[in-house]
Amino acid sequence: MTTPDWVKNAIFYQIYPDAFARSVPPQQQWLLDVPLEDWNSPPTFQGYKGGNLWGVIDKLDYLQNLGVTALYFTPIFRSASNHRYHTHDYYQIEPLLGGNEAFDKLLKEAHQRGLKIVLDGVFNHAK
């Protein structure tokens, strides 16, 4: 296997979406009704902070200004856990993160800025 050329000089920024940034677009106002932990409190095993891919989209210019050229996401697929390593469906982005709609928008916005996206699929956790 050959390493893609873009990886050799990429500057990666790893994102755990639940705790990175939160934004709620008009079409997903139901996210405001989800019970969340206080943003500034220490994380727990079962609680959610409410960060999502919409929040990441809002921070893309900031990340690019840091010199970042690639974003590495911890698992974002549908899951019953806040860390999302217990994936239920590899074809669906977790609704709490904005779902497939937010992911499609993230890809479009990132690629317009020349940013690469890498997903942690945790396929070794699948049965």
Rank of each mutant, 00 (worst) to 15 (best):
Q28H: 11
N82V: 11
P25I: 14
N40K: 13
N82A: 14
N52P: 05
V56N: 00
A70T: 14
N9I: 00
L32Q: 14
D89N: 15
S23G: 00
D18S: 02
V68S: 01
F123G: 12
Y85W: 11
K49I: 02
Q28T: 01
N65M: 02
R22Y: 04
E101R: 13
L107K: 15
I117M: 12
I57Q: 14
R78E: 15
D89I: 06
G114T: 10
N52H: 01
Q27H: 15
Y62E: 10
I57C: 14
R84E: 02
N40E: 14
G55D: 04
V118P: 02
K49Q: 03
F73E: 07
G67P: 06
K105S: 12
N40A: 13
V122M: 13
G121T: 09
P26H: 04
V118G: 02
L106A: 06
R84D: 07
N82K: 07
Q28N: 05
A102N: 02
L119K: 09
P35I: 12
D18H: 07
T44C: 04
T69N: 05
S23F: 04
L96D: 01
T69K: 11
A80I: 03
F77C: 10
V122C: 13
P42Q: 08
G114F: 11
H83K: 08
K59A: 04
Y13T: 05
L71V: 04
H83N: 15
F123P: 00
Y13D: 07
Y90R: 09
P43L: 13
A70F: 06
D120F: 10
L66T: 00
P17N: 09
I11R: 12
Y90T: 06
I117D: 08
I57G: 03
T74R: 02
W30E: 13
L71A: 03
A110I: 09
G55T: 04
K127I: 05
K116I: 00
F20Q: 06
F73N: 11
G55P: 03
Q64T: 12
L36F: 13
E37Q: 14
L96Q: 11
T69Q: 03
E101F: 00
L97D: 04
L63H: 03
N124V: 11
H125I: 00
I15R: 08
W39H: 04
K127H: 12
K108M: 10
D18N: 14
P75Y: 07
S23A: 15
Q14Y: 06
L60Q: 02
Y48A: 02
P35R: 06
T87G: 04
E101N: 09
Y91E: 15
W39K: 12
L63V: 06
L31T: 02
T44M: 01
